[in-house]
Write a protein that binds this DNA or RNA. Structure first.
Lengths: 241, 241
DNA sequence: ACAAAAGTGTTCCCGTTACACCCATGA
DNA sequence: TCATGGGTGTAACGGGAACACTTTTGT
């Protein structure tokens, strides 16, 4: 065997997006306690090496479950990161030595996107600390995790463009059209007229008006809507263009 | 170290598309001679294990160069295939044993898309036989190569939708609008009116009319056009919606 | 009364669609 | 002269953009 061929570990890393009450995209980052490594350096994307009998999709699903306690989250593989230098930082190598009790000098990772309602209870079975970070307040992370996050921002836009329905994974079950508008704007930074947006969205059969309206707001109360996935699947491949 | 974590080889496989003179999408498949393995079973996607100091993008670029002799081909990573059973067929395992003189029982691959003008001379430094196969005449291939090809067909459509300019990688440098129409139709199977298509395309500033027209055709000769990448980049992010 | 957002209606514009019509060329 | 495709023109349609106007609620 030509020894130049790589023989390596493979991991998955998950970028989980949420949409907060200040209309910002957030990402779930984790912190793990490992002896002798300063805590503030241990904030990173959730991830794991994959098992020898495991597909990468299953590994990502497992990581998400260990992260949030949620069984089936939407997820999408978006890129394999394999820069030979991605795990060459001395601190990162030391960290892996402790994390896996084994010396690893190169590791290839497959990055996944996922979406989560930000109010959903996070019930991690693996991580001591799991927190939401607004995307423009993400600190410096180990490996190429900042690069992965940057690319994931492009991907989430593409994803929602190709399947509008997944945007509702980021909203509460009942939502106002303004909430949807603000999420859509945060993702696209286009300047759409909210009136026209309202008219268009409310005309869709799969956006179902509820009897409920807002309470205690200092302006006319907005109606709540819900997204009906069945109606969506019947009628649309994509919508909003 | 928990021995359940995978420690594996990683490869890249490339799906190279071409567009033939009968308006069909084609794929480049290779055949390698290995002792004691029947030849007809050796048709497969071009690919290679990646080297220990190599990024996957570089590996794919290398595979494409070894395949065609072309230095810089457009390429796009589209998915990592990691089903634990993808290399478990007895015949495939035997093949790997001979190919790599080493026993490999699992291998993860990163699949790439690429595009090539079908008339371009193929000058492989690695493969004895390299042939174009129309997509609906691709034979049964080893590993999950048929699955990779099926998914690549979805990807090439998405790719051209998000960046129209790469469609010209499949056409000769000078082409008629009908050729472009037929390629576009083969990719989208929409029923566009060719007259309207003609009008629209010829209005784009980056579709530059040449002085040349067809010869020896039994109808009015069509004008040849070329694609101007510089004009495209200046003016457009995307076009054709 | 005022501010702020909900919600509806109207008009204009522009790109797509359908289709008619003429042109050029070989058989 | 006919068939085939090239190439242009035009009119109808429809969705999006801009924006006016009314409604509702709290301060």
């Amino acid at each position: 065997m030509n020894q130049n061929f790589i023989h390596t570990y493979v991991s998955v890393d998950c970028v989980v997006f949420g949409f907060d009450h200040e209309n910002r995209l957030n990402i779930l980052l984790v912190q793990r306690h490992v002896d002798d490594v300063p805590l503030e350096k241990q904030i990173k994307l959730p991830g794991s090496l994959i098992f020898s009998d495991e597909d990468v999709d299953d590994a990502a699903q497992r990581v998400l479950h260990e992260l949030t306690g949620i069984k089936k989250m939407v997820l999408k593989q978006f890129k394999c990161f394999a820069d030979p230098m991605r795990a060459s930082n001395a601190h990162d190598i030391k960290w892996m030595d402790q994390e896996y009790k084994h010396h690893i000098d190169r590791i290839i990772t497959v990055a996944y996107l996922s979406l989560c309602k930000i109010d959903h209870k996070i019930n991690s079975t693996k991580y001591e600390t799991v927190d939401w970070y607004p995307v423009d307040e993400v600190p410096l992370l180990p490996f190429d995790h900042n690069k992965i996050i940057n690319e994931s921002l492009m991907e989430i836009r593409k994803w929602i463009e190709s399947d509008f329905s997944i945007i509702f994974e980021l909203l509460p079950k009942r939502f106002t059209i303004r909430q949807l508008y603000q999420l859509y704007s945060a993702l696209n930074e286009k300047n759409i007229d909210i009136k026209n947006f309202h008219k268009k969205i409310s005309s869709f059969p799969y956006i179902v008006p509820l009897d409920e309206i807002q309470k205690d707001v200092s302006h006319r109360a907005a109606r709540y809507y819900r997204f009906d996935a069945k109606i969506y699947k019947k009628n649309n491949t994509k919508l909003i263009k």
